[in-house]
Amino acid sequence: MGLKINNLTKSFGTGDIETQVLKGVDIEVKEGELVILKGASGSGKTTLLSIIGGLLGRSGGEVSLNGENYLDIKEKALTSMRLKEIGFIFQSSHLIPYMKVIDQLTFIGEQAGMSSKNAKIRAEELLKEIGLGHRLKAYPNVLSGGEKQRVAIMRAWMNEPKMILADEPTASLDAQRATEVMEMIRDNIKVKHAVGLMITHDERLFGYADRIYTLDDGYVADEKMDKKELIYN
């Protein structure tokens, strides 16, 4: 079980201007695993993540989560899946400026069908868990970059998703904050038996991954490489 990607392809444009970004990607991420996806700029990492997240259509291949081939379901169902089963963490926190910290989470919970009361209880638990219990009523504009990103991570966990997709979640953070955030993401994935796929260029964070894939020229390379090998070579 977990995430399985088989022979995934993606092309942009047609005819002479057709560009094939993904030429047949195969990736497997098991439950409780955090896999890092690296690659040069323009190699198609975000395209891959967007397809897995149901935000972009694919040209060919299969993507399944816990055995369910979900990309061909109707748009409405896919939106609902993004809400309930996929947690997104972006490079920037992308918090809603007019919502208090606690509301950033309760809104997502209520959208997924949670009662206001239960959403509030869960949001408080999650925020206290990451040391933001004293910031529940604060607006994003008074939070530090690290605090914002921690709120964004907990927003992704609010509906207990089966899969976390993160696109350079530590890019805007200093080293210490980046380490904290990585530990938080990894620990949550382990404890909650979720699937984690993360794009990052930061080699200091490779040690947190169970496996590392490199996307190069539309194919996945180095998938067999052990993380220790990467760190020490």
Binding site: G53, L55, K76, T79, S80, M81, R82, L83, K84, I86, F88, F90, H94, I96, P97, I108, Q111, A112, R155, A156
Partner: peptide, 15 residues
Amino acid sequence: SQLGILKAIGTKNGE
């Protein structure tokens, strides 16, 4: 941008 993020994390168009 905010609306796009809300859509990405699963907020329906209707909402």
